[in-house]
Design a protein around this nucleic acid. Structure first.
Length: 231
DNA sequence: GCGACAG
DNA sequence: ATCTTGTCGC
């Protein structure tokens, strides 16, 4: 599927007004969202972790076809569907969602993490491995237009640009990511990435035999608290 | 016009 | 993101 950047841009500008930065209430579970590709199929994964025990409480995934091309500043239009299709399969709503990509550290203050936060009306945090927009100075990224700090740079393996998705403050977002930085990676995102990579390998390349954009639950094992099975 | 440009 | 093995270095 093609991408109409004219329309996509207006959608971002309109929805950006819905981004909020409320302080994050106490949280117990954090979900990591990621996507991987194989041919013309995108695999999305949502892995939920208990912040105290670091145990995986639940995980889900999905596959989608009819991919949209990647165009800088419009990543959400390519990865939103596979991420959300996996997310909605979760039985329990996680307290916070970590997204692989930027939040408001975006030219129109609406990266994929913000897009997901607004759509779900839930706390989301953007975690990217490289800068897309803004001026980096020390551990902060400033908006060249307003001078506002739009992202925090953390060291977790390599650099990690943390920004507000929505419904969280930058301070809380940075503290949360720092806390989940384990083994040189942001744990929930690492698990989501691993799951996504495995699905890509386990699945034969074609897509049709799995039907309307989804992977059978027996292949994408969904693990839950107290239940058996692994990711 | 030139350079930058999440995944 | 994806195509891909070995190899240099701490």
């Amino acid at each position: 599927m093609p991408l109409n950047t004219e329309v996509a841009r207006k959608i971002q500008e309109l929805l950006a007004k819905r981004v909020t930065a409320a302080p994050l209430p106490s949280y117990n579970t954090v979900c990591g969202l990621d996507v991987a590709y194989s041919g013309d199929v995108a695999y999305g994964a949502a892995v939920v972790v208990d912040v105290r025990s670091l145990a995986v409480t639940e995980a889900a995934c999905a596959a989608t076809k009819n991919l949209v091309p990647y165009v800088p500043t419009f990543l959400a239009f390519r990865e939103l569907t596979p991420m959300l299709r996996a997310y909605v399969k979760l039985r329990y709503q996680p307290d916070v969602v970590l997204v692989d990509g930027h939040g408001v550290a975006h030219p129109r203050r609406f990266g994929i993490a913000s897009h997901i936060g607004v759509v779900l009306k839930r706390p989301t945090v953007g975690v990217a491995k490289s800068r897309l927009y803004g001026v980096e100075r020390g551990d902060a990224v400033y908006d060249p237009e307003t001078g506002e700090v739009i992202a925090r740079v953390l060291r977790c393996g390599g650099k990690r640009y943390v920004s507000v998705g929505s419904h969280v403050t930058l301070e809380d977002a940075a503290a949360l990511v720092q806390r989940l930085c384990i083994g040189g990676d942001v744990y929930p995102l690492r698990l989501a990435h691993d799951l996504t990579q495995r699905l890509k390998r386990v699945r034969p390349s074609s897509f049709d035999q799995w039907g309307e954009g989804r992977i059978e639950d027996d292949v994408c094992t969904v693990k839950r608290l107290g239940a058996g099975g692994g990711i």
